[in-house]
C-alpha cells in the first residue's frame, strides 16, 4: 500500500525543508515524521521520502539502515530498550534484562505474539549516573530495581 504524509505532516515537512540549504538534509526529520505516522519505515515509506527529496529509494534505504532508531519492521506497542553498556552493566543491567524476559514473556530482540511488547538491548543512553536504566518508547526510567520494573509493567495500558 502506498504511503503518503497526512496533510498536517506534509505541511510540517514543507516547513522543515526551509531550514536547510540542501534538500537532502531534511532526510532524518522526514523519516522521523514518517515513523511517527506509520510506526515503522517500510519500503513504501522509503520510496515516498525519496520522491519528496528527489532521491532514489536506495539512497533512503542506505541512510535508514545506518541508524538504530528507525524500525524496518513493526515493533511492539511498548518498546523496552535496556541499556547494556559498561556503566549500566556494572550496576546490574543484565538482571534488568532477564527480569523483563521473564515478566514480559519475550526474549531479547523479540516482539510478543500479540504485538504488545518488544524487548531490545541498546548502547549507552547518556544516563549512566542513574543506572541501571531503560528507555520505554520515548521515556527514560532510571535507577531501576525489579520492584520498579514490576510497577512499570503494571502501569502499562
Amino acid at each position: 500500500m502506498a504511503f503518503e504524509f497526512t496533510a498536517e505532516n506534509k505541511r510540517k515537512f514543507d516547513e522543515i525543508l526551509t531550514r536547510y540549504p540542501v534538500q537532502r538534509a531534511a532526510m532524518l526529520p522526514a523519516l522521523w515524521l514518517a515513523q511517527q505516522q506509520h510506526g515503522w519505515i517500510s519500503h513504501e515509506v522509503m520510496e515516498y521520502v525519496g520522491s519528496l527529496l528527489g532521491l532514489s529509494p536506495a539512497k533512503v534505504y542506505e541512510t535508514v539502515t545506518f541508524y538504530t532508531m528507525f524500525h524496518l519492521k513493526p515493533i511492539g506497542r511498548h518498546h523496552f530498550q535496556v541499556c547494556r553498556t559498561l556503566p549500566c552493566q556494572l550496576m546490574g543491567a543484565e538482571g534488568i534484562t532477564s527480569h523483563l524476559e521473564k515478566k514480559l514473556g519475550v526474549k531479547l530482540g523479540e516482539t510478543s505474539g500479540d504485538g504488545r511488547y518488544t524487548l531490545s538491548e541498546v548502547e549507552c543512553l547518556g544516563s549512566c549516573g542513574t543506572a541501571p536504566m531503560l528507555q520505554l518508547n520515548d521515556d527514560y526510567h532510571e535507577n531501576l530495581t525489579p520492584e520498579k520494573l514490576d510497577a512499570l509493567i503494571a502501569s502499562l495500558k
Partner: peptide, 27 residues
C-alpha cells in the same frame, strides 16, 4: 537556530560524521 535530531549512532558524535548525518547521509 535549528534543532536537528539524530537517529541512533554513536559515531555521529564524531564531528565530520555529524555533518554527514546532518546532510541526510550515513554518519
Amino acid at each position: 537556530v535549528v534543532v536537528h535530531r539524530g537517529a541512533g549512532a554513536y559515531i555521529c558524535g564524531e564531528e565530520t560524521a555529524l555533518m554527514e548525518s546532518l546532510e541526510g547521509k550515513r554518519g
